[in-house]
Design a binder for these strands. Structure first.
Length: 247
DNA sequence: AAAATCACCAACCGCTCCCTG
DNA sequence: TCAGGGAGCGGTTGGTGATTT
């Protein structure tokens, strides 16, 4: 398979250039992609006169050269989105990145690792205690809905849960890992036409508690596990995201 | 001032999925 | 139906600048 050989590998055992990109290489790649568009990365590498693998070209374009990329620090709003979406989808960086216009999956992944992984360890012990405590206390006031998601689109219920453009309702997200998931959202299939306006901030400490309860983050990546509560709960993060998701 | 450590980020690697012939 | 190639994804590594000791 190509994965074994690397993109663009050829029978001549050509030595592909590796390491940091030079301004000249960037210029060549940008000009070529702007002229011919994305896709066919292995031919981009060849035709643009770059001694790079297609894979390398794609990565450079996506993570650095693509127009519209944001530079600079992740804002608190973006951080909030990252936290929320990671709680939903786990390490689905590319999926998360679709909801952060101008940010790349690589950027988000790096940000997560440097900012949150440490906290995860530190809070892991505390959270285990929390879990044990919660297990002994049945949830109250928690109305649940199960949404089946056999196709790739959001069900109406899920859409209702996520679309908050028309009203000002407060949507309370409640991570509840030691019970069965009560709402399951599939990964969204498209990133286009998505905008966020965060109308409120939420207590980060409360969120950490829920987020770090994940014993195994990879489990959360298979299915999105969300519980919606009808009544805002003071214990959980309560905020009013202003989503507009067009599927 | 120098060495050690930390934080950040670009880039690579290997795996998997999807499409096509 | 299946194999091969293209493409995308998540995990990991390594370089570099900043900060601390």
């Amino acid at each position: 398979m190509v994965g074994m050989m690397g993109w663009g590998a050829n029978s001549d055992q050509q030595e592909w250039r590796k390491g940091p990109w030079t301004p000249e290489e960037d210029k060549l790649l940008s000009e070529y992609v702007n002229l011919h568009g994305e896709g066919r990365w292995s031919s981009v590498a060849r035709c643009a006169g770059l001694n790079r693998t297609g894979k390398s070209c794609r990565l450079r374009w996506v993570n650095y050269l693509r127009p519209g990329l944001k530079r600079g620090h992740i804002t608190p709003q973006e951080e909030g989105i990252i936290i929320e979406l990671h709680a939903l989808w786990g390490n689905k960086w590319s999926t998360i990145a679709r909801y952060l216009p101008g940010r790349t999956d690589n950027e988000i992944k790096n940000y997560w690792r440097t900012h949150f992984k440490k906290k995860e360890k530190a809070s892991a012990k505390q959270d285990k205690k929390k879990i044990l405590r919660q297990r002994n206390q049945p949830q109250q006031n928690c109305t649940t809905t199960t949404i089946s998601t056999t196709d790739k689109k959001l069900s109406p219920q899920a859409e209702q849960a996520i679309m908050r453009s028309d009203d000002n309702n407060t949507f309370t997200y409640h991570q509840n890992m030691d019970q069965d998931p009560v709402v399951e959202l599939p990964p969204l299939t498209t990133s286009s036409d998505i905008s966020y306006t965060w109308t409120d901030t939420f207590p980060m400490d409360g969120l950490w508690g829920g987020l770090w309860n994940l014993d195994d983050h990879s489990q959360a990546s298979d299915k999105c596990k969300v519980a919606l509560q009808n009544e805002p709960a003071t214990d959980n993060c309560s905020y009013a995201p202003d989503y507009a998701v067009n599927l």
